[in-house]
Amino acid sequence: MSNKQDRLIRWRLILGSKSNVECNSLTSDEITIDRLLEDVYNKKYTSLTNSGHLKNWLKNIRKFFPAETVRVIQKDVLERFDLKELLLLDPENLEYVEVDVNLVADLISLNSAITEETKEGVREIIKRLTGELQKKLKAKMIQSIKGAINRSNRTYRPKLKDIDWKKTIECNLKNFMPETKTIIADKFVGYTRGTSSSLHNIILCVDQSCSMTHSMIYSSIFACVLGSIKSVQTHLVLFDDSVVDVTSELDDPVDILFKAMLGGGTDINKALSYCQNLVQQPSKTILVLISDLEDAGWLSKMQEIVNSGVQVISLLALSNEGVPFYDSSNAKKLANMQIPTFSCTPELFPDLMATAINKKDVSMWAAKKEIVTCI
């Protein structure tokens, strides 16, 4: 096949059967691909509203497209023809979907429609996603947090067993005596370890309204990773117009997400009041509010928490989705309170938390990462 003919066929498949692109006859595989795409992009109505047809379509697109492309097409068909609930009617449909954050977000938002027949299939999909995300994000999170805690717990009056000899030697190289080839140490560097007073308290306070579903998924993953680090006390608090503390379930993100109830109102003040009661050592506490800030009457409570000495960060979103929707007025008021306010990708979140633990300037960190903050 010539390059020209190959390009014509590609354009024919892109533009559909109603295009004016002229090319030789399509192969049987190309005809199948054409029909699969026609069902999504060139029809006002689709046969995919039939559960059996949807199952076959989901099965077939995986034969002809790579996983990343399947995710895009799958998302388009579910949204264009509002097939999300239909997906849950037949357990076999769930066997052929390509798992990604968008799909899990859709399933969580439809939890009230999950039947007993599809419950296990939905759990398996959530388990697959959380497993993939943990594998991708866990190592960096643990490395960043443990390194940050070690640095923040550094002391210059360590006990013998807690001396960091490498750092101690580096700090005393100026005292090297060539004649005896020894170093006279006048400063020792070590860590304070193993005491409850050294624990960092991290509170993730997450809005579980429908617009924040992606953020809730990533927050649950990170909370579970943080919960596995002994030198950190982690709390995960979900809220809408009520507050649910799911800290006791941090060993399994699947349970957290499967039980999430989305779609209620938003009461940030109630959520902050609950989180305030979790604070034992304000100077050792980091509160991360993850919300689009769509509520009123809570800013005075936030100011109270900040005044107590708690380090507060406001994330408008924790996801890879573009620019988030949020209340710009409330965001600017938080920024005026010197609270770093911006959205963050999951890949940058471990470094963000390490920066906060080390009490470095989070806004400066965001600027270096070219993150647009609310000023």
Rank of each mutant, 00 (worst) to 15 (best):
residue 58 L to K: 00
residue 84 K to W: 15
residue 115 T to S: 15
residue 147 G to Q: 03
residue 148 A to P: 04
residue 162 D to I: 04
residue 20 N to S: 13
residue 24 N to Q: 14
residue 156 Y to A: 07
residue 128 R to E: 14
residue 90 D to P: 04
residue 154 R to P: 01
residue 137 L to Q: 05
residue 88 L to E: 03
residue 72 V to A: 08
residue 30 E to F: 05
residue 150 N to G: 13
residue 42 N to T: 08
residue 126 I to S: 03
residue 135 K to H: 14
residue 97 V to F: 00
residue 25 S to I: 13
residue 147 G to H: 02
residue 86 L to S: 09
residue 150 N to W: 11
residue 162 D to V: 03
residue 132 E to Q: 14
residue 34 D to K: 14
residue 87 L to P: 07
residue 133 L to A: 00
residue 131 G to S: 11
residue 148 A to H: 01
residue 31 I to C: 08
residue 24 N to T: 13
residue 61 I to L: 10
residue 114 I to R: 07
residue 89 L to S: 15
residue 71 R to Y: 07
residue 61 I to D: 04
residue 94 L to G: 00
residue 53 H to C: 09
residue 102 N to W: 10
residue 25 S to A: 15
residue 38 E to S: 14
residue 160 L to N: 10
residue 22 E to L: 13
residue 55 K to F: 05
residue 119 K to E: 14
residue 99 V to F: 03
residue 146 K to V: 15
residue 40 V to P: 03
residue 156 Y to T: 12
residue 137 L to I: 06
residue 108 I to G: 02
residue 36 L to K: 02
residue 162 D to Q: 11
residue 101 V to P: 01
residue 31 I to H: 06
residue 74 Q to K: 02
residue 143 Q to F: 13
residue 119 K to F: 11
residue 120 E to L: 12
residue 157 R to P: 05
residue 130 T to A: 05
residue 36 L to F: 07
residue 145 I to T: 06
residue 163 I to D: 06
residue 159 K to W: 10
residue 78 L to A: 01
residue 28 S to L: 14
residue 126 I to P: 04
residue 57 W to T: 03
residue 142 I to C: 06
residue 120 E to A: 13
residue 106 D to V: 02
residue 31 I to D: 06
residue 148 A to L: 02
residue 134 Q to C: 11
residue 140 K to F: 05
residue 155 T to R: 07
residue 109 S to Y: 10
residue 48 L to W: 04
residue 124 E to K: 14
residue 120 E to P: 04
residue 92 E to G: 02
residue 48 L to C: 02
residue 93 N to F: 00
residue 167 K to M: 12
residue 56 N to A: 08
residue 135 K to M: 13
residue 23 C to M: 04
residue 40 V to K: 01
residue 148 A to N: 01
residue 112 S to K: 11
residue 112 S to C: 08
residue 97 V to L: 00
residue 143 Q to I: 09
residue 83 L to T: 05
residue 137 L to T: 03
residue 136 K to T: 13
residue 111 N to I: 04
residue 36 L to R: 02
residue 84 K to F: 12
residue 86 L to H: 07
residue 24 N to G: 14
residue 60 N to Y: 13
residue 47 S to T: 12
residue 158 P to D: 00
residue 60 N to K: 13
residue 74 Q to N: 00
residue 49 T to D: 08
residue 139 A to L: 10
residue 32 T to V: 12
residue 49 T to Y: 08
residue 162 D to H: 10
residue 116 E to S: 15
residue 46 T to W: 01
